[in-house]
């Protein structure tokens, strides 16, 4: 069982061996995507598991009109957002207004300024509202109108959350760079 078609056919029949192939092939990539919407690895894995359950149960619905990965990715992101809405009740709600406006300008970054681990860590520390909107806009290319629909927020809120999230991120990255400089000295 090597071809994606075979795996797909197997998954539609509910074969565990095919599910395993699909999982081993894509779980690492999808976990990295989940991780962009989660507070920590545990939460990311929860989303991954929930997402795979949805994928296996609904794989019949995959029409083959696009790449399988894109379809699975969409499911993961939807799961992450649903997860976020569920978790809202249990979480301490960050007061977004408290984040100070930054005086730093976006001078730009070198591609290798930070490691993947560092970036993931910073993203996980991002206030939830900022993170979801920022990732949906910057990584998945959703429009603010679409984000407003998915996140059940106002379109203008989406826009302002995005620009604040972006500023928050910049500030954090600058701080990280400064800290490192001190360490090196």
């Amino acid at each position: 069982m090597n071809g994606e078609k075979d795996i797909l056919a197997g998954c539609i029949k509910g074969k565990q061996s095919a599910q395993w192939e699909l999982y081993t092939r894509y779980s690492r990539l999808l976990l990295a995507i989940c991780n962009r919407y989660a507070r920590n690895m545990d939460e990311a894995e929860d989303i991954l598991q929930e997402g795979f359950v949805k994928i296996f149960l609904n794989i019949k619905e995959f029409k083959g009109d696009g790449p399988l990965l894109a379809w699975m990715r969409r499911i993961m992101i939807n799961t992450a957002i649903t997860h976020y809405h569920k978790m809202l009740k249990h979480r301490y709600h960050d007061d977004l207004a408290e984040v100070a406006e930054s005086k730093f300008e976006d001078k730009g970054w070198g591609e290798t300024d930070f490691t993947e681990d560092e970036l993931f860590r910073v993203i996980q520390q991002m206030p939830d509202g900022y993170r979801q909107v920022f990732m949906l806009y910057a990584m998945e290319g959703y429009k603010h109108r679409e984000i407003a629909g998915i996140m059940k927020i106002d379109e203008n809120t989406s826009k302002s959350q995005y620009s604040r999230g972006r500023r928050w991120l910049q500030e954090r990255l600058i701080k990280l760079k400064v800290e490192r400089k001190h360490k090196d000295e």
Partner: peptide
């Protein structure tokens, strides 16, 4: 930066 570094990342 985020897009370049995290797109295609694997965990």
């Amino acid at each position: 930066l985020i897009r370049k570094r995290l797109e295609g990342a694997e965990l």
